[in-house]
């Protein structure tokens, strides 16, 4: 219930109406959106019970490792009611053709594979918010100072997921495991996404805000 309350408000991409349509415009819109979502994610993390008790360094390390997984999981959840489209924001939905034109076809295919998995599982909001927090706590940062404290956070979130499943889905005792088994594909997709946006940064054609740049640089 804490995680449901902490869930952020809807976010809007608001593409610049004065800019002509192009791949650069689409990428600029997405990078601006990601920058604003990062601010929201940092605020959200503080509401995860136990996260703020970690050292500042460990809070930073977890976010630096997991931010793209959290961004992607949110896109995935927003896209569940859609067919073959990715809902980057309430006002920014991309289909296969649009993704191809923007150079994001590989990412589109990977994220859609995740969407299909969660659709098949009929993932619920409670499960999605818990998985997001688990992705953060389980981000395998190599710079954790107090692993015992991080382990405690992982255990508490894992327990929340198991409690929910034993109450809501007693018919499927393996449901929590099925949900956790989606996380490797999420990690793989996020790694690809970070590499792709890092190469866009290196090319220097798309303006990027400072927080997004800072988080991209922390990942490579």
């Amino acid at each position: 219930s804490h995680l449901l309350v902490a869930e952020p408000e809807k976010i809007y991409a608001m593409p610049d109406p004065t800019m002509p349509e192009s791949d650069i415009k689409a990428l600029t819109t997405l990078c601006d959106l990601a920058d604003r979502e990062l601010v929201v994610i940092i605020g959200w993390a503080k509401h995860i019970p136990g996260f703020s008790s970690l050292s500042l360094g460990d809070q930073m390390s977890l976010l630096q490792s997991a931010w793209m997984e959290i961004l992607i999981l949110s896109i995935v959840f927003r896209s569940l009611p859609y067919e073959d489209e990715l809902v980057y924001a309430e006002d920014y939905v991309m289909d296969e053709e649009h993704s191809r034109l923007t150079g994001l076809l590989d990412l589109y295919v990977s994220i859609l594979q995740l969407v299909r998995k969660y659709k098949k599982l009929k993932v619920e909001k409670e499960e999605f918010v818990t998985l997001k927090a688990i992705a953060l706590a389980n981000s395998d940062s190599m710079h954790i100072e107090d692993m015992e404290a991080v382990q405690k956070l992982q255990d508490a979130l894992h327990e929340a997921l198991q409690d929910f499943e034993s109450g809501q889905h007693p018919e499927d005792p393996r449901r929590a495991g099925k949900l956790l088994m989606t996380l490797p594909l999420l990690r793989q997709t996020a790694t690809k996404a970070v590499q792709h946006f890092y190469s866009i940064k290196v090319q220097g054609k798309v303006p990027m805000h400072k927080l997004f740049l800072e988080m991209l640089e922390a990942k490579v």
């Binding site: 940092i42 605020g43 500042l56 976010l63 630096q64 400072k210 800072e214 922390a218």
Partner: peptide, 15 residues
């Protein structure tokens, strides 16, 4: 950590 100053600042903000 100097490189990650925005993240650092946002985590320290109480909001």
């Amino acid at each position: 950590k100097e490189k990650h100053k925005i993240l650092h600042r946002l985590l320290q903000n109480s909001t």
